Amino acid sequence: MIHLTESAAQHVANFITSRGKGEGIRLGVKTSGCSGLAYVLEFVDEANPHDTVFENHGVKVFVDPKSLVYLDGLEMDYVKNGLNEGFEFNNPNQKGECGCGESFTV
Rank of each mutant, 00 (worst) to 15 (best):
I2A: 13
H3C: 11
H3K: 07
L4N: 14
L4T: 10
T5I: 15
T5R: 01
E6I: 14
E6D: 08
S7F: 02
Q10S: 05
H11S: 15
V12Y: 00
A13R: 10
N14W: 01
N14C: 04
I16F: 00
I16P: 06
T17R: 11
S18W: 08
R19H: 12
R19L: 14
K21T: 13
G22K: 07
G22T: 14
E23F: 04
E23H: 03
E23S: 14
G24D: 01
G24K: 03
G24T: 08
R26I: 01
R26S: 13
L27I: 10
G28E: 01
G28Q: 02
V29C: 11
V29R: 00
T31A: 11
S35A: 13
S35G: 08
G36F: 07
L37W: 08
A38T: 11
Y39S: 06
E42N: 05
E42I: 01
F43S: 11
A47S: 06
H50G: 10
H50C: 08
H50V: 11
D51Q: 12
D51Y: 10
T52F: 11
T52Q: 14
V53W: 04
V53C: 09
N56Q: 14
H57M: 06
H57T: 13
H57P: 11
G58N: 12
G58V: 10
G58I: 14
V59L: 04
K60G: 07
K66E: 12
K66M: 12
S67L: 02
S67E: 11
L68V: 13
L71E: 05
L71I: 04
L74H: 05
L74I: 13
D77Y: 02
Y78F: 04
N81M: 04
L83G: 02
N84A: 09
N84T: 09
N84Y: 00
G86Q: 01
G86Y: 00
G86S: 08
G86E: 00
F89M: 09
N90I: 06
N90P: 00
N91D: 10
N93L: 06
Q94V: 05
G96S: 13
G96N: 15
G96L: 00
C98F: 03
G99M: 15
G101V: 03
E102I: 15
E102G: 06
T105Y: 01
T105V: 04
T105W: 02
